[in-house]
Computed example of a mutant assay.
Amino acid sequence: MSAPVIAFSGSHIDRADHIRNDPQGLAALKTWQARLLRLDGLDPALTAENMLEWGSLADAAPDSELVFLGLDGDRGCFAEVRTSYPSGSPHAGPASWHAMAVLEAGELATYGGARSLVSWHARHRFCAVCGSPTALAKGGWQRTCVSETCKAEHFPRVDPVTIMLVEHAGQILLGRQPRFPVGRYSALAGFVEPGETIEEAVAREVFEEAGVRVRDVTYIASQPWPFPSSLMLGCHAHADDPAITVDITELEDARWFSREDAIDALEAVAHGENGRAFGAPPPTAIAHLLLRWWVERG
């Protein structure tokens, strides 16, 4: 695959794990030089030059919690978790899609990590074991129950999701959901369930959504997706029987497309248009990368 760029990967910030467990080291970073990532709820605040907007720790509300994102050189980088739940949807909205289109890759990755962390903290103020309040720990990479009889430790959640191209006789299986823009089709996807391998999740999801049995599942690439906090696991599989039975509770439609269809759709989406057969996912989605991988492997 030629020079793949995976959106939300490649942050320039050093995660500096060794500092998270060092209260004195963390405190020493909270100086006038420290940077605070500005957020509008969960959406990014951008400068006129379409870069992430940073302020100082003095801009944070007095009762906010500060999440340590990492180091930029010798400067600490933080995000603010306010006492009120952040406004806006946990899913991607217009501001996030705009950021995906204009932010440099490393900055987009920094925003994605911060968004996932802030959203997780906002949703986990109380212990899932006993219901007591939780307090930020390890610089924001843990929350700990404050109850002396519980003290349960909670860690930022990441939800694995399989997203897969299924191939049969030189064609690929794509589906569309009702919420998609007109004409768009994408790779099938679904959450990995407890007790499943990635391969089992791929096979189950494809059969549930399209009634197609698959084999020979292989892993291709992954993508962090901070809406609210998924890890997309890109895969490829083969099918022996092309018959489709669409689960209308999951998909509006599913069909097979040729390599020529995929090439045309990828060329069209670069100009903001749909191809003759379908509209491809945008370049920021791992489904786009999977399509490119399939086309380029010949």
Score class of each variant (00 low, 15 high):
1 M>T: 06
2 S>T: 07
3 A>E: 10
4 P>I: 10
6 I>E: 13
9 S>Y: 03
10 G>V: 03
18 H>F: 06
22 D>V: 01
23 P>M: 07
30 K>Q: 14
32 W>M: 15
32 W>Q: 14
32 W>H: 12
34 A>G: 12
35 R>Q: 14
37 L>V: 10
38 R>S: 14
45 A>G: 15
46 L>A: 03
46 L>C: 03
51 M>E: 14
54 W>K: 09
54 W>H: 04
54 W>R: 05
55 G>M: 08
56 S>T: 15
61 A>Q: 13
66 L>C: 10
67 V>A: 06
70 G>M: 01
71 L>S: 07
73 G>S: 01
74 D>K: 12
75 R>L: 12
76 G>S: 07
77 C>S: 02
77 C>V: 12
89 S>R: 06
93 G>S: 11
95 A>L: 10
97 W>T: 08
97 W>F: 13
99 A>D: 01
101 A>W: 04
101 A>E: 11
102 V>C: 05
104 E>I: 01
109 A>C: 06
113 G>P: 06
115 R>K: 13
117 L>T: 01
118 V>A: 07
119 S>I: 04
120 W>L: 06
125 R>H: 04
126 F>K: 08
127 C>F: 00
130 C>G: 04
137 A>F: 00
140 G>H: 03
142 Q>I: 06
143 R>N: 08
151 K>H: 15
155 F>M: 10
157 R>G: 15
157 R>W: 08
159 D>Q: 14
163 I>R: 14
165 L>K: 01
166 V>D: 13
170 G>Q: 07
176 R>D: 10
177 Q>L: 09
177 Q>M: 12
180 F>P: 11
180 F>T: 09
188 L>C: 07
192 V>N: 09
194 P>F: 01
194 P>W: 02
195 G>V: 02
195 G>Y: 05
196 E>W: 00
197 T>V: 00
197 T>G: 05
198 I>F: 12
200 E>D: 14
201 A>N: 04
201 A>E: 08
202 V>Q: 12
202 V>F: 05
205 E>S: 13
216 D>P: 02
217 V>G: 04
217 V>D: 12
218 T>E: 10
223 Q>P: 11
223 Q>A: 05
228 P>E: 12
230 S>Y: 14
233 L>R: 06
235 C>I: 03
235 C>H: 04
239 A>K: 01
240 D>F: 02
245 T>Y: 02
247 D>S: 07
247 D>L: 02
249 T>Q: 14
253 D>N: 13
253 D>P: 11
254 A>Q: 09
256 W>Q: 08
257 F>M: 04
260 E>M: 00
260 E>K: 02
260 E>L: 01
261 D>H: 04
261 D>Y: 01
263 I>R: 15
264 D>C: 03
264 D>T: 03
264 D>Y: 00
265 A>F: 10
269 V>P: 09
270 A>N: 15
271 H>E: 15
276 R>I: 02
277 A>G: 02
278 F>M: 04
278 F>C: 05
279 G>K: 00
280 A>S: 10
289 L>N: 09
290 L>K: 05
297 R>M: 14
297 R>E: 14
